[in-house]
Design a binder for these strands. Structure first.
Length: 140
DNA sequence: GCCAACGTTGGC
DNA sequence: GCCAACGTTGGC
């Protein structure tokens, strides 16, 4: 299983809204960056991702799971290459992990969240995943 | 094919 | 509100 991190501004689409969609999930629309698109295309059903709130909160709020692999983004113009995956909310982190906390953790200093701060869909290593879950007091 | 101008993201 | 980083656009 691979791990990822995706970003959303919570006043546009929050983790609570994602959770409310239930097990069926929801397409992750609107990615318009080629690096982010390539990551979407690498995602497999069953992979998990952190849901990060950018701008407001600046914290990892919860965990989502990929329930459908990539297909064309219904919000893109005809002929454009953009794709979506469907994701479902899995669990809210008991303790959200803030950007500040991540920056303080030396083992997380190479996270893409820090190094590639503008990339909206990014990979997370197994070690990073484990540590962020621990910081978030998520057992799972 | 280069590069300046411009737009967007996202932290501060 | 500002600014750095970075992607895109368009003139040449």
């Amino acid at each position: 299983m691979a791990f990822w991190l995706i970003k959303s501004e919570p006043d546009v689409w929050s983790f609570d809204q994602q959770l409310a969609k239930g097990a069926k999930g929801e397409p992750w629309t609107g990615v318009r960056n080629h690096s982010a698109k390539l990551n979407l295309m690498k995602m497999k059903k069953g992979d998990r991702a952190f849901f990060y709130h950018s701008n407001i909160g600046k914290e990892i709020a919860g965990i989502i799971e990929i329930v459908r692999e990539h297909y064309p983004d219904p919000t893109a113009e005809a002929g454009e290459p953009w794709v979506v995956v469907d994701v479902r909310g899995v669990a809210k982190l008991p303790q959200p992990v803030t950007l500040e906390a991540i920056k303080k953790e030396s083992a997380l200093k190479n996270m893409a969240l820090i190094k590639l701060s503008r990339l909206s869909v990014q990979p997370v290593t197994a070690e990073e995943w484990k540590l962020v879950c621990k910081l978030g007091q998520f057992k799972g």
